[in-house]
Simulated scan of single mutants.
Amino acid sequence: MAFSKLTLTCVFFYFFHFVQCDQSKPADNHHREHITNENFVIHRDSGDRFLVNFYGEGCARCEEYMADFNRVEETLRDAEIKMFDCNSKMVMQGLSVKRVPSLLYFRYGIPTFFDGVPVAEDIIEWVVDSHEVLTTELHDDTFEHHTQASSGATTGDWMVVFCIKAHADCTILLASLEHVALKLLNKVNAAWIDINHNPELKERFHLKKSTEILYFRHGNKYDYHLPDTEFSNLLAFASGAYQHSRADPVEPPKTPFDKVTEQIAEEIKPIENNQELPRDEPVEREEKEENLEVKVEQDGPQTPFFLIAGVCVSVVLALLFFLFFGRSSGGRQMKKGV
C-alpha cells in the first residue's frame, strides 16, 4: 500500500523529534544494492519509487553525505521507497550527473533531482514534496485539449519538452523539468512529449531535432534559446526569459477534412505541374513484355483457325441461299409454261 504525502510527513516528524540517532556511527552502505549500467533501465522502467545516491570513490564529502542518506533510508523504511547507491561512471555520464554527491528520485520512471543542502531533514522534506509526478505526458490526441495552445491557453502557460524518451539525455532533461514544475507550482504547467510516438505534433511544430523545448502563452509559442538545458536555465526561461524569443502564433491542429484535402492535393500535384508520371521499373517492363509475347504466341495459332471457319460458314450459307432461291424461281417458271 503506497503511503500518502501526509503519511510521509508524519513519519518525518516522528523520526526527527522522537528517535535518537547515533551520529558517531560510521556510514555503511554495503547493504544497499548498486545501480549499474546493466540494471538501470530495469529499475527505471519498473514503475517503482526509488532514490539513487551518486557518489565517487575517495570523495570525503560523499562519505559525510552517506551518513545522512542512511538516516533517510531508516526514516523511509516503511514508505515503499527503495534506496540505491551508484558510482558507475557510465550511468552518471548517461544521466549527465556532473558532480558528486548527487541524488535523483524516480517515480514511475520520471526522475527529479535534489539541489538543496545534503542533510537528512532537507532530503526527506524534498521527497515528501516530490512524492507525485508534477509533469504531464501529452500525446497527439491530448495536446490541444490540455494546453489549448492555439485558442489562447485558458489553462495557463505551458513549458513543453519534446524528446525521445528512450534516450538518456531525455531522462535527465525530464528530471530538470520536474524540478521546474516543483519550483513554479501553480504558476507554469510542465509537460513532455515523446516525439517518436507522436508524429502529428512533430509535423505540426516542424520539429527537426531529437530534443526541443517550446513555451506556450496566450496563443503564441516561444522557442528555447538558452545555450544548454541545465535546471537553472530552464527555470529562468520559464520564469520570464522566454520573452526574449520571437513570439510565433500557434498553428491550429489539422481537422480530418484538412488531412483529406492535403492528401488529394499531393496526388494531383504532378498532373498540375505537367510532371511525367512515374514509369515502371525496368524489371516490371520486361515482365510485361514477356507476358505480351506469351499472349501473342497463345493467340497466334487460334487466329487462322477462326478465319478459315468463318469463310467455310459463309460459303455454306451462300450455297444454301442460292439453292433455295434457285429452286423457288424454277418452280414459278414451270407453272407459267403450263
Results as ranks from 00 to 15, higher is better:
residue 205 F to E: 00
residue 309 A to S: 09
residue 215 Y to R: 00
residue 75 T to C: 14
residue 239 S to V: 08
residue 287 E to P: 05
residue 243 Q to C: 03
residue 92 M to I: 05
residue 82 K to Y: 05
residue 108 Y to R: 13
residue 182 L to Y: 06
residue 232 S to L: 10
residue 154 T to H: 13
residue 234 L to K: 03
residue 273 N to I: 05
residue 79 A to D: 01
residue 208 K to D: 09
residue 115 D to A: 09
residue 218 H to S: 15
residue 277 L to F: 11
residue 129 D to S: 10
residue 242 Y to D: 01
residue 182 L to T: 04
residue 171 T to N: 01
residue 97 V to W: 01
residue 45 D to T: 07
residue 270 P to Y: 02
residue 252 P to W: 05
residue 136 T to R: 10
residue 258 D to N: 12
residue 295 K to L: 15
residue 221 K to P: 00
residue 162 F to L: 07
residue 292 L to S: 12
residue 223 D to G: 06
residue 314 S to T: 12
residue 311 V to I: 15
residue 329 S to T: 12
residue 132 E to D: 13
residue 7 T to C: 11
residue 94 G to R: 04
residue 94 G to H: 06
residue 293 E to M: 13
residue 261 T to G: 01
residue 162 F to C: 06
residue 88 S to Y: 01
residue 13 F to T: 08
residue 123 I to H: 03
residue 137 E to V: 09
residue 315 V to K: 06
residue 152 G to C: 03
residue 243 Q to K: 14
residue 181 A to G: 07
residue 61 R to Q: 12
residue 333 Q to M: 15
residue 143 F to L: 02
residue 236 A to K: 11
residue 154 T to Q: 12
residue 118 P to F: 15
residue 245 S to E: 06
residue 136 T to H: 08
residue 30 H to P: 00
residue 97 V to T: 00
residue 172 I to C: 03
residue 324 F to T: 15
residue 106 F to W: 00
residue 228 D to R: 05
residue 147 T to Y: 01
residue 222 Y to G: 00
residue 76 L to E: 02
residue 140 D to K: 11
residue 301 P to W: 10
residue 251 E to S: 14
residue 274 N to V: 03
residue 91 V to I: 06
residue 115 D to Q: 08
residue 62 C to K: 01
residue 20 Q to V: 13
residue 122 D to T: 02
residue 124 I to Q: 07
residue 211 T to G: 03
residue 100 V to C: 12
residue 61 R to S: 15
residue 327 R to I: 14
residue 184 L to Q: 02
residue 59 C to A: 02
residue 227 P to C: 04
residue 14 Y to D: 13
residue 306 F to G: 00
residue 58 G to R: 02
residue 289 E to W: 12
residue 233 N to C: 03
residue 64 E to F: 02
residue 176 S to F: 00
residue 118 P to Y: 13
residue 254 K to T: 10
